[in-house]
Amino acid sequence: MRDVADAVGVSVKTVSNVVNATGQVGDETARRVRAAIEELGYRPNPLARGLNARSTDMVTLALPGLGHGYCAQLAAEVFALAEADGVSVVMEPTGGDRERELEVLRNRGGLSDGVLLMPASVTARDLEGLAFPAPAVMLGPRRVRGPFDGVASRDADAAESAVRLLLDRGAERIVLLGGEREPGGDSPAALRSAGYRRALAAAGREAAPDLVAGTAASSREDGHAAIRGLLDDGVRFDAVLALEDPLAHGALHALRAAGFGVPRQVRVAAFSNDDDAAYSVPGLTTVTADIRSMARRALDLLASRVLNSAGPRFHVDVPFTIIERESTFSYA
């Protein structure tokens, strides 16, 4: 639909109006739109058709916030793909609060035709026996089984692969920066911590307690303070796996200030591939989920559920990629 709009020089909404015979579009403009549709071989997207059959042509995107790189990337992809489908997106920050997440799922007032929710606090038990007026898709690292479809990133597997990369590069003692000291749970930090432990166990090693550096938040300041603290305590390490890119940026700064070379003395890897990862010094090796695929699959699942609320629920995993940069390179 975006390609058709660009070819004709009109808005996506105008193309949507022609396709769905809604709104006021002049005869000449409509003719040009139809000609472009024929020339480009456009076929209406099921998301737009599913939602246009209802009332609002809107979906709600509910995220814990936008300060986090993962959330910001996901929001950008959802907005771009939905706009191309001729659908509007209503943003609903939840702050990760359980009651606010449930309120979004209740869709009070029928503000949208469906909900995309990244759950931070709500659990499958919270959803048992409750009736929800609009379809929803859960997306993000946490897998919440319940009456909704889900699209998840494989965070535990991704962390395991990142640790294997560090081990293959010669690392012996790997700091888990921002990690969980106790196994269990399904938060992103818990899942990534589980992958870290799994990779060490597969290599015949234990996760040393002094190498798990928890942080209050995921900022540069937190990463800097945690690594500075390890160095002050005399903890030996030759690699860092930071559970968020900002933590890694802070770690790089702390290591550089303490005179440690990266990657010659300490290798550093992280998660999310934020905008600074490629431009840090050295460039930061980072793990990233296929956020665009997550957004596309979630929108398509929501469209299918709008059209057919019955049937089995689908839970889809999206792939991840390790983007290796200078921070983990090997040197002879």
Rank of each mutant, 00 (worst) to 15 (best):
M1I: 01
R2M: 06
A5D: 00
V8M: 00
G9Q: 06
V15E: 00
N20G: 06
Q24V: 12
R31S: 09
A53R: 14
A53V: 03
S55K: 14
M58E: 07
L61P: 03
G65K: 09
G67P: 03
Y70S: 04
C71Q: 12
V78C: 13
V87G: 02
E103Q: 13
N107F: 03
G114R: 06
V115K: 03
L116S: 02
A120N: 07
A124G: 14
L127E: 03
P133M: 09
F148T: 00
V151Q: 10
S161D: 12
A162H: 02
V163I: 15
L165K: 00
A171F: 04
A171T: 04
E182S: 10
P183R: 04
G184Y: 04
D186P: 00
D186R: 11
A189I: 13
G195K: 07
R198L: 14
A199M: 08
A202N: 04
I227S: 00
L231W: 05
R236G: 08
H249E: 10
L255S: 08
V262G: 02
V266M: 09
F271P: 04
S272T: 13
N273C: 12
D276C: 13
T285P: 09
T286W: 11
T288C: 13
D290N: 12
I291A: 06
R296E: 11
A303E: 05
G311D: 05
I323S: 07
E324Y: 07
E324I: 11
A332I: 02
